[in-house]
């Protein structure tokens, strides 16, 4: 993918407020993802029904990479079954770690396929994905 296109997808999602809000509704699971070594701090709000992610929202204070990838994740995984979501997260992880992965599953999240070039930002790119995985694993 062209670097300019990637950049504009990252920035569009960084600015996108669709899924960016705090949720008071207690039917959502609240998960705090915090990167102690840097300073990202994001709350995920996860609503699960019938083994499906019915809704996924987030809010917090974080860098451009963390924020953008979380926005993409919310869009991508909303409506997916827990099993499907875990599979996508594992593929995303493989991409970040430069292993084989299914590009088609990741849609816009493919924009982070060269984040390995900035090792210090890998954690930013995976912080909330790992937070969500932790919650989903409780259902498996």
């Amino acid at each position: 993918m062209d670097a300019n296109i990637k950049r504009s997808i990252i920035l569009d999602n960084y600015e996108d407020k669709t899924n960016r809000m705090d949720i008071e509704d207690t039917s959502y699971i609240k998960h705090n993802s915090r990167n102690v070594s840097c300073i990202d701090n994001i709350n995920l709000y996860i609503k699960i029904n019938n083994n499906t992610i019915e809704d996924l929202k987030f809010n917090g204070e974080a860098c451009v990479i963390s924020t953008s990838t979380t926005a993409i994740m919310c869009k991508l995984l909303k409506g997916k079954t827990i099993k499907e979501a875990i599979d996508i997260i594992k593929n995303y992880d493989s991409m970040i770690e430069e292993k084989e992965y299914n590009q088609e599953l990741l849609k816009e999240a493919n924009v982070f396929d060269d984040i390995y070039k900035q090792p210090s930002r890998k954690k930013c790119a995976t912080l909330t994905w790992h937070g969500l995985l932790e919650e989903l694993n409780k259902y498996e």
Binding site: I39, E61, A62, C63, V64
Partner: peptide
């Protein structure tokens, strides 16, 4: 701009 982005 988030502080860490400025630092990067």
């Amino acid at each position: 701009i988030f502080a860490q982005d400025t630092a990067v």
